[in-house]
Design a binder for these strands. Structure first.
Length: 933
RNA sequence: GCCCGGAUGGUGGAAUCGGUAGACACGAAGGACUUAAAAUCCUUUGGCCUCACGGCUGUGCGGGUUCAAGUCCCGCUUCGGGUACCA
């Protein structure tokens, strides 16, 4: 019987489904293990061969853990809300609900063909009301919470209201948008609306007028991680800065906890470093500078308090509220012109031009240490959103200040002995201070500390920690997202009672975004909140007395993906996000596999979201993902044919230089090992129907290049095609064999035959012709050794996610057993258990051929018995001064003295020693003998 | 600019603690079986010298530590990724 993968895979996929083999229980005597994949956006293009890479890796680990006796949670779902799904719907002119449903069905189909061990009963879709009910619920909790800096946790806003009523803002250290102060009397005198306005300053989910990234082409605002180099990450459209009233999440309040939490996580150092940079903690000082001729003081932030003696000017961000106050009458016109110019420059232009621009305000400030007057300038190289939107400029030791000073001819005072600032600034934090009053003679590091202390002791400012991490903008002016559970009374937002959730997304006729920013939900006819009847009502009935308008924006893509891992624990629970029992059992994710592109988005937001839920006390762990592995990207490998210019003749790769040719992308699916299928090429496109070929050795060889996998390059490989041709097991093995999991690599089918051949050889061990040939004989020591060294290697490799080398180990094992003509159950049964996580179908078939009734999923992973690995002799390479000259074979139990004796007392060593006595003899047990002359 | 990874045969890649570099696979060459092809199997395959035995050389480049370096240290070259007027 041949290895008929098609039949085997079809049969077992059906069996697994019918018998609920992958169903997971929330109660078990076994220890738990939670393996999670980053769930996919179901895009219209379907899965390509790169998508399953991480899924295969996690599936192997899940199956391995199950064989090792764990109760394994390995779910799958779909991140169905958000921009990509909606963009696809817009492109195809269909309603996103329909396209999303279709795309999900296609994804499921493709995933099932690969034989994953998901418990589909736990499937979640973020666009499903029963799921987003809990996204909305979490939002309401955030709305009703504030962050206490003292206890470093979220607290109910009701506590804050009580505190305000008794003590005003006295004795409070809480995260806020703007520092404000009032007494209890002042608070109590305010009306409901005013009080609500103040509370907005503290809520963890709050609405505020902020400068946001507005993308006109997408018709929505974007979070910082959705913008790269002034362009939207999705679609690459220009993004501008715009002041808008938006929902935000106070992620910044959690900055320190997000930073500290990284230390305990088993993530790669580079990913943790990316997050640390994104959080961007910097320790410095806030300092007060007095405006000359007044008593007014403004605050700047610096990490280089040691350089105050070198401050030769100040710079304000154009958006700073101080701009108006410091602009003198004479400069008014110039300043306004500059502000106007800045407004019209997009973020992208600013970055691209890198031009020094700015304007003098007309005013001066007083340097608090030197008492000198220094001019105040306005320039867009200072950002309003970081620090205080104002800086002290030290051109000698900051390259940006330096460029500005050179451009506007401002003085430059060097502060470090011997530094040369004639060509560029000296930014390094090293050297000895000079020109710096009481700091002279100190090293820079000492000076920073001394200056900070001086500033604090003399009331010039205070030591301050700043974070680059900013609050997440949470509104999207789009249709396809979770509706906010918010309605407006007197212009103030109120939450819908949680027992009325979910607030279901209404259907609309026009779901397209608008360039001006009116959300498409405004087109919904039934989209209003009736407080009495507590239901969604007709928009025409809005009277602002009993029936109120609802929030028209929707939530961003990351809303639904922030806590999805909790929902898998208890996906059907209708009255809790996750039950206490389920959460206490599953705790958090033991292994999370996904792409590194989520480093500053999803992986920050879910950690934030999770910490918030932890503060509420509804979950047991404050970090969601214990271990994280980033699988590399699979790039495309394009193929080219070379057409002789002006003809329909194509010349093979190595002959192309003899002609004037033009390379043309050719569909990689009609090329095999870089050899073109000429017949299929002629059929591929009408233009090539009559194509002629100039061949080399009867073959047409194609050229190739590594490019992004995309339709236009004709290099997209669909996993379905591979499954069809080679089977799912071959696909799984081959994707892992391609190279290290975490490394990016091009898809290249050139080696797939080797992996497929391996499965055929494996099959050949169990079958002789049509007969199942496994016998009940005692295994020889050699066979046992082959088996146990494979067990050892495979176990080690799986634990270290080194799947490519495990497949090599399997190949070696099968080759050895084939040579040994071994068909013994004692060897062949453990072997398929080892292989089961990698190739579930073929192993399941062979397992049943061996007479087992239950699935191989519930077998026991074999243990390596070291006793079979012990050698009776060891080969020692003998080297002289590190160069290997000959090899000795000695008994394994030879003593060190025996080994030394053998190494020296023989003909060959005599030749190299030439009568001399060796200086040193180094024997590394079992490895090498080195004789130093 | 800053931060983090890489660089090993014709190709993808092994080498886990500093200990015989090139496992495994692809490709290529030769051979067996076959009328032939496919499939399968066997042999060779880093480079140079040698009929051979064997020797020399060899992990991006230049130094260093060590009996011994792909692996550790210093200085470069180069490719990839992340990030940026963050004071």
């Amino acid at each position: 019987m041949e290895y008929n993968f098609k039949e085997i895979e079809k049969k077992w996929q059906a069996e697994w489904r019918n018998n609920n083999i992958y169903k997971v229980n929330n109660q078990s005597e076994k220890p738990k293990y939670y393996v999670l994949d980053m769930f996919p956006y179901p895009s219209g293009a379907g899965l390509h061969v790169g998508h399953p890479l991480g899924y295969i890796a996690s599936d192997i680990f899940s199956r391995y853990k199950r064989l090792k006796g764990f109760n394994v949670l390995h779910p799958m779902g779909f991140d169905a809300y958000g921009l990509p799904a909606e963009q696809y719907a817009i492109q195809t002119g269909q309603h996103p609900a329909i396209t999303t449903e279709k795309n999900i069905a296609r994804y499921c189909d493709q995933l099932n063909k690969i034989g994953f061990s998901y418990d589909w009963d736990r499937e979640i879709k973020t666009c499903d009301p029963s799921y987003y009910k809990w996204t909305q619920w979490a939002f309401i909790q955030m709305f009703n919470s504030y962050y206490c800096n003292k206890t470093q946790q979220a607290r109910p806003i009701s506590e804050l209201i009580q505190h305000f009523a008794k003590q005003g803002t006295e004795n409070l250290d809480i995260a806020c948008s703007e520092p404000i102060h009032f007494t209890a009397e002042e608070w109590n005198a305010k009306n409901e609306t005013k009080q609500q306005e103040i509370l907005m300053n503290y809520r963890i989910a709050y609405k505020a007028d902020t400068v946001v990234n507005w993308c006109p082409a997408l018709g929505t605002v974007l979070a910082n991680d959705e913008v790269s180099e002034g362009l939207s990450v999705r679609g690459g459209h220009p993004v501008e800065q715009k002041k808008m009233s938006q929902w935000c999440l106070r992620v910044s309040a959690y900055a320190q906890r997000l930073l500290d939490g990284l230390d305990q996580l088993a993530w790669t150092e580079s990913l943790k470093e990316t997050q640390r940079n994104w959080i961007g903690r910097s320790e410095g000082a806030e300092m007060q500078f007095r405006l000359a001729g007044t008593d007014e003081q403004f605050t700047i932030f610096t990490t280089r308090a040691d350089t105050v003696f070198g401050v030769t000017f100040m710079v304000l961000a154009p958006e700073s509220e101080w701009v108006e106050r410091v602009t003198t009458a004479e400069q008014k016109e110039a300043v306004n012109a500059y502000l106007e110019q800045v407004k019209h420059r997009t973020e992208r232009e600013r970055i691209a031009e890198k031009k020094v621009t700015g304007v003098f305000s007309g005013s001066y400030a007083i340097n608090p240490l030197t008492q000198q007057e220094i001019p105040i300038w306005i320039s867009d190289y200072v950002l309003a959103g970081y620090g205080t939107g104002a800086i002290m400029a030290v051109p000698a030791h900051d390259s940006r200040d330096y460029a500005f000073a050179k451009h506007f001819n401002l003085p430059i005072i060097p502060l470090i002995e011997g530094c040369d600032v004639s060509e560029s600034s000296f930014d390094a934090k090293e050297g000895i201070m000079t020109n710096s009053g009481f700091l002279n003679g100190l090293t820079v590091k000492e000076a920073i500390a001394t200056a900070k202390k001086y500033v604090e002791e003399n009331g010039l400012g205070r030591v301050k920690v700043n974070y680059r991490l900013r609050d997440a903008i949470f509104s999207r002016q789009r249709y396809w997202g979770e509706p906010f559970p918010i309605y407006y009374k007197n212009g103030m937002p109120y939450t819908i009672p949680t027992e009325k959730l979910p607030l279901v997304l209404p259907s609309v006729d026009k779901f397209l975004p608008t360039e001006t920013g009116e959300p498409p939900l405004g087109n919904a006819k039934k989209w209003a909140w009736d407080e009495q009847n507590a239901c969604v009502a007709d928009t025409n009935a809005i009277d602002n007395k009993t029936i109120f308008p609802l929030e028209l924006c929707t939530m961003p893509g990351f809303a639904g993906s922030s806590a999805y891992y909790l929902r898998y624990m208890d996906p059907k629970n209708d009255h809790e996000l996750v039950s206490k029992a389920a959460n206490e059992y599953w705790q958090n994710v033991d292994l999370y596999i996904g792409g590194t592109e989520h480093a500053t988005g999803h992986l920050i937001y879910s950690r934030f979201w999770n910490k918030f839920l932890f503060d509420l006390g509804i979950i047991t762990k404050d970090e969601p993902f214990k271990k994280l592995i980033n699988q590399g990207m699979i790039q495309g490998r394009s193929n080219f044919v070379y057409r002789i210019v002006g003809t329909n003749t194509f010349v093979s790769y190595n002959l192309k230089d003899q002609y004037e040719t033009q390379p043309i992308h050719v569909d990689v699916n009609i090329v095999s090992n870089d050899v073109l299928d000429q017949e299929r090429f002629r059929q591929w496109m009408p233009d090539f129907k009559d194509a002629e070929f100039i061949l080399e050795g009867e073959k047409y060889i194609c050229g190739w290049a590594i490019e992004k996998m995309s339709k236009s390059m004709f290099n997209v490989v669909n996993p379905d095609d591979i499954v069809e041709r080679y089977g799912a097991d071959t696909l799984r093995l081959y994707e892992m064999f391609l190279g290290p999991l975490e490394q990016s690599k091009p898809w290249d089918t050139n080696g797939i035959d080797g992996v497929h051949r391996f499965l055929k050889k494996l099959w050949g061990l169990y079958f002789e012709g049509d007969n199942f040939a496994v016998v009940e004989e005692k295994a020889t020591p050699d066979e046992l050794k082959t088996l146990h060294k494979t067990i050892k290697k495979i176990t080690f490799d799986i634990e270290n996610f080194s799947y490519n080398t495990s497949i090599s180990a399997f190949m070696i094992c099968v080759n050895e057993l084939t040579q040994q003509k071994c068909r013994k159950r004692e060897i062949l049964e453990p072997l398929i258990i080892l292989l089961a996580p990698f190739a579930p179908h073929i192993t399941e078939e062979l397992w049943h051929c061996m007479g087992h009734e239950t699935s191989i999923c519930d077998a026991v992973f074999p243990l390596c018995e070291e006793k079979y690995l012990v050698e009776n002799s060891v080969k020692y390479p003998v080297s002289f001064n590190g160069k290997v000259r000959f090899t000795l074979e000695l008994p394994a139990d030879a003593s060190k003295a025996d080994i030394e004796q053998a190494a020296l007392g023989n003909e060959q060593s005599a030749k190299y020693l030439n009568g001399a006595t060796p200086k040193k003899i180094i024997v590394v047990p079992g490895k090498i003998i080195n004789i130093v002359l």
